[in-house]
Design a protein around this nucleic acid. Structure first.
Lengths: 363, 363
DNA sequence: GTCCACCATGTTCACGTAAACATCACGCCG
DNA sequence: CGGCGTGATGTTTACGTGAACATGGTGGAC
């Protein structure tokens, strides 16, 4: 396929003298093929072309065919900038997040993109390298200039709340992973319920108490899981062991596992995500503590790989696809009704998946 | 933050009578604040506002301040649709891919987004659910209408080559994971070299030959890894065991592992990615074959978790960030020079990371 | 047969921005 | 002291699209 000089060939519609004279080659080109070009070739007005392009009624079949033929011949494609200008909207949703590297984020984004596409919306990604205030602010400022009708924020919203940051007006917002349900539309996995299921599962198996490896302190999701873990233990009147601080990485889970291996009392652990659970399993394995013989382990996320850990990991399944779906649904409702943010929190349920890493304690 | 009625308040700039009369509320709103609004408040022409907005010289300091103040007061944000229309470009790169779920893809996309942002470009994601011809075509048709100056295709380009599909003219393309270097700009990890390193590492350790678990047959990357594996064995004059077909998933690796556990001759395996290696490790573990004691295993990708497999996985490190960086660099060069595709393949080197899953065979 | 309604199509205009050109005032130089 | 260049700012226009209104021709009803 020859892409090297197509612009020349299409930017000079048949017989078209360059407007404004001066045939300087570097001049700003007339962008591709416009309705006017099609109209000229088809021998109709550009309004008729517009009608055909948008499937409006009131165009006689013969004319329509003629226009379609001209479109094909010239390779006409509508100019979305002009469309957006005309309509005042872009049919695009912005997604602002720290990182795509976490499975949860990338799967959520994927679901968002898929559902948005089904609704005729495109997704614009705004990743933020380092979650500093400045970068967040910068991203939002950029966001304001971006061609975006709405924004989905996948991160802790409090990072935006220093007062100087202002969400651009006229842009609708849905937030994931945050407790800002009183000010924004929030869609999130039901972290607390998931954690409760995990801890109760371990207690039900007969463990006296459950240890815990946390996520990073900055993560709202992590905090909720830790809170729920503590709450379940307290409700059940069990001792609450000191939580081990993790950061979502397998490495931090490994470190936690090394510590736990030295705790003879420990028979059960709830790890705040599967990657840390992987590191923890390895540490326990290295130290000769068997899972689930000596220690039961529950993770969170249900990575596709979790079933293939050694042993297969019991974990809390998150439905990222559903989270993405609801984000899109919610934000598009706002867009379509021209409504503002509707505060409220929409929680997606979790499911405990029991595999081989949990068992009753040795009596 | 009150988002519920901001549009009303900003859509009626001070003293502005609604053009066209009829105050029907549902009417298409004058989109937010325009340069004209700012100009009116600042008491200058809109052209001066434009000059200030774009940092052009030739505006006296006092005037500039006045305009900036008016911008702040009205919360002016430039309209990117109008800008794009005016300039004929969108400052946006489209990324078309099948899935974000694979680590490689999501990390590549992340790098693309980051580097694009640094260059003032946004990223629009076009995921394709099912890699059928129709969907691909649909995506590209949509792409043509999308506000995109260039496209990065992260998939096998031959899926586009059935003749009916036509890349929209005027859109620059870079391809990842494909062998279309003769027609497109291709940026990719040096799959063959990585696979060679893996296989040679095993041979160097003294293994007589190396078994192989492939990726899906449709994957170009997978094919290249398999070809290189075969080539190294043939060059070394070693027997070439029948490859076991995988599909990137841990589950398929597990199945392959179960087969291999029954091959007494097998002392070394090169698995085409880390996730399959995980499944394979578990299968071998289950069947009581020790790694690396009985069988050495090498993966591909170097997931962050690979160091925490049991045992830690020797694998080929892919630099996804670099792939993303080069994609952006390449495609933006095309955009800026208005040049067409520059056929050619840009290979990013790999690195063998030796961990605990490989050792010399038991003699 | 005449008038009018209706339908296909054309014309005008605005969306917000910014390049190109126009204007106007001031100051410097001869 | 007059003319002209220079620099600040205003005016015009085009980018591509599509709603609103205009036009013009045809057929049916009286």
């Amino acid at each position: 396929m020859d892409l090297s000089d197509h612009e020349q060939s299409v930017s000079m519609p048949a017989g078209g003298a360059r407007r404004g004279g001066s045939g300087v080659p570097g001049e700003r080109r007339k962008q591709r093929v416009s309705m006017a070009d099609v109209a000229r070739l088809a021998g109709v007005s550009s309004q008729t072309v517009s009608r055909v392009a948008n499937g409006h009624p009131g165009v006689i079949e013969a004319t329509r065919e003629q226009v379609l033929a001209a479109m094909r011949e010239l390779g006409y494609r509508p100019n979305s900038a002009a469309r957006a200008l005309r309509y005042g909207q872009f049919n695009t949703i912005g997604v602002i997040l720290f990182s795509l590297s976490s499975t949860g984020n990338s799967r959520t984004v994927e679901a968002i993109a898929t559902h948005a596409a089904a609704q005729g919306y495109a997704i614009t990604l705004i990743p933020i390298d380092v979650p500093t205030q400045d970068n967040v602010l910068g991203a939002f400022t950029r966001m304001g200039e971006l061609a975006v009708d709405a924004v989905i924020v996948i991160m802790e919203i409090h990072l935006l709340d220093a007062g100087t940051v202002q969400l651009p007006p006229g842009v609708h917002v849905v937030v994931v992973d945050s407790d800002a349900g009183d000010r924004y539309s929030v869609v999130d996995t039901d972290q607390a319920d998931g954690a409760r299921k995990a801890v109760r599962h371990l207690l039900d198996l007969g463990h006296r108490t459950v240890w815990h490896v946390t996520g990073p302190g900055t993560s709202y999701a992590g905090q909720r899981r830790t809170q729920a873990w503590r709450a379940v233990l307290e409700e059940a009147g069990r001792p609450v062991p000191p939580p081990l601080r993790g950061d979502w990485s397998a490495e931090s889970g490994y470190a936690a596992g090394l510590s736990l291996a030295g705790e003879p009392d420990c028979t059960a652990v709830f790890v705040a995500n599967d990657q840390m659970a992987l590191g923890l399993l390895r540490a326990l394995h290295e130290r000769g503590r068997s899972v689930p013989g000596d220690i039961s382990v529950v993770g969170f996320d249900d990575l596709p790989e979790a079933a293939f850990f050694v042993p297969p990991l019991t974990t809390v399944h998150q439905d990222f696809a559903e989270v993405g779906r609801r984000c899109v649904q919610n934000v598009l409702r706002q867009v379509r009704t021209r409504g503002g943010a509707r505060p409220g929190t929409d929680l997606v349920p979790t499911r405990l998946v029991v595999r081989g890493s949990t068992a009753a304690p040795r009596s």
